[in-house]
Design a binder for these strands. Sequence first.
DNA 1: TTTAGTGCAAAAGTTTTGCATGGTC
DNA 2: GACCATGCAAAACTTTTGCACTAAA
Lengths: 144, 144
Amino acid sequence: MTARQARSEAQRLLDASGVRATPGRVQVLAELVREPNDATAQGLHERLRARGERVGLATVYRTLGVLVEHGIVDALSHSPGELCYRICGGGHHHHLVCTECHRVEELGSCELDEWLERAAAVHGFRATSHRLEVAGVCAGCAGA
Amino acid sequence: MTARQARSEAQRLLDASGVRATPGRVQVLAELVREPNDATAQGLHERLRARGERVGLATVYRTLGVLVEHGIVDALSHSPGELCYRICGGGHHHHLVCTECHRVEELGSCELDEWLERAAAVHGFRATSHRLEVAGVCAGCAGA
DNA sequence: TTTAGTGCAAAAGTTTTGCATGGTC
DNA sequence: GACCATGCAAAACTTTTGCACTAAA
């Protein structure tokens, strides 16, 4: 994907969510569009600077906050003390992360709700939400 | 549970795992024994100091690291940038956390493995481990 | 003109590390 | 003596906030 394509896709995503497409936001989101897996705020900032785009670290954090708030990106925390961000399909889903190469796949369907409701009820809980992260080894890494 | 009981339970847990029962470790672990839910490193440190026990914050962190390494306690991260620790029963299990009072229950049985294997295989992954955290409202808070 | 976004620097917060000290095997 | 644990302080690191400035509605 070219830089121009990434920027236009970023613009489209922002427009679709009614978020003003400011320069900083387009830069950050375009960088995420080019990233098939997930990236940290620091990592995104470094890449943008390396690419010659003048964007502040605070703007990267503020932008990611806005993007998460509008559901344009998801925040994952597979290592403590550090959040990773990723563009995600809509709806409820979970992630499959390769422990070797950090590739991320989405698990489209989630068939946990019914089981969860029963399991929670045993403890007197009403389950309202859940987060599942699956670690594994992807086909590429298993072969190597 | 009295302070003496907590300390002796802590000692037992350390012995059972072959971890040397030094003063700092017994203090930290005894504090976790008294805690039905989970606690942060900072919180444990504060409580120990308030109780008059002279223990350094670094020791609390180092001890928690050792305890996690030996599977004596679990580290949960339900808020980013901060880990919570908790004594856990052995074996594979998941947590049910009340969003109101932060009470934590263990979900004893995990019936996800079969479903997960199939779901991962669709993406060419071999699932090796998973982590599930369920948020909900406990009976007490639902009533209030 | 009023609001929203941005860059920079400083601050806040958690966790780790260096180093000297004291206890244990 | 060698090693491990500990306290303290300093450092590292991620993330947030204050403030001045700019651009946009």
